[in-house]
Amino acid sequence: MHSVPEMTNAGSVEFDDFICFAVYAAGHALNRVYKPLLDTLGLTYPQYLAMVALWEQDAQTVGGLGEKLFLESSTLTPLLKRLESAGYIRRERSTEDERVVVIRLSAAGIRLKEKAVGIPGCIVEASGRDAADLTRLRAEIVALREALNKSGTHG
């Protein structure tokens, strides 16, 4: 394990050199852009991510959805209950294994996608970057996450 402080410039411990803060602050900035867009849908950002995952693939298990969103079931379950109360999803026990809960989109949840279709474009526009640049940046962030997760398992 390295004992060097987290930094982007070797030998520097200046606040502005910390990549963790840059990523953290960018996340907050993204949330500020998303909030008014999601308010029109009546969704929080985590609820929106769950809906996007379900629009991509309906009928997912709670466990599978949690893995995809990097959320523990203790965080995901209340979020899903709120989406169910709003009428966007149904939680059902699997017919093959009663311990497994399957999440399915309701008709209202399917229709909600039509209202949300413009959100990604708004985020691209707000970023001031083109889609190719954001795709490259996303790939770099995912690679960073995977490297950090891998290094965290060797502690």
Rank of each mutant, 00 (worst) to 15 (best):
E72R: 13
A147S: 13
M1G: 02
D133R: 15
H28V: 02
H2T: 13
E84F: 15
G128R: 04
L49C: 01
L144C: 06
E98L: 10
L137V: 03
N149S: 12
L76N: 07
T40M: 04
I119Q: 01
S3I: 14
E67W: 10
H28N: 05
R129H: 15
R136A: 11
G87M: 02
E96L: 03
A86I: 10
L76A: 07
D97W: 10
K35N: 02
D97Y: 01
T153N: 11
R91D: 06
Q47A: 06
A29G: 14
D133E: 15
K68C: 12
A25S: 14
V33C: 07
R32K: 13
Q47D: 01
A131K: 10
A126T: 05
E56W: 07
Y45I: 00
S127C: 08
V117A: 09
G109W: 00
Y48W: 13
L65T: 07
Q57K: 13
M1S: 11
S3D: 07
T44A: 02
R136V: 05
A53P: 08
S85R: 14
Y48G: 00
G64T: 01
G63F: 04
A143S: 11
W55I: 00
R82V: 10
E56V: 03
G11K: 03
S85V: 11
Q47Y: 01
K113I: 00
A132K: 11
D16I: 09
G87W: 03
K115T: 13
K81T: 15
T95Q: 09
E56T: 12
A126Q: 07
I19A: 09
A147T: 12
R136P: 14
F70T: 08
N149D: 09
Q60S: 12
G155L: 06
I141D: 15
L79C: 02
D17E: 11
A29Q: 02
G118T: 12
S12V: 09
L43F: 02
E96G: 10
L43W: 05
I110K: 10
L137F: 15
E92D: 10
T61H: 01
R91S: 07
V100R: 09
E6R: 00
L79Q: 14
T75S: 14
A50K: 05
S151K: 11
A22W: 08
F18S: 14
G66H: 04
V4Q: 14
E92R: 02
H2Q: 12
H2F: 10
I123L: 13
M51Y: 06
S12A: 11
I110T: 14
V4M: 12
A25E: 12
Q60G: 05
L69K: 02
I110M: 11
S73R: 01
G87L: 03
L49T: 08
V142G: 02
L41H: 07
A22I: 09
R136Y: 10
D130I: 07
E92H: 06
V62N: 08
E14P: 08
L105H: 03
E6D: 07
N31A: 11
N31K: 14
G66N: 06
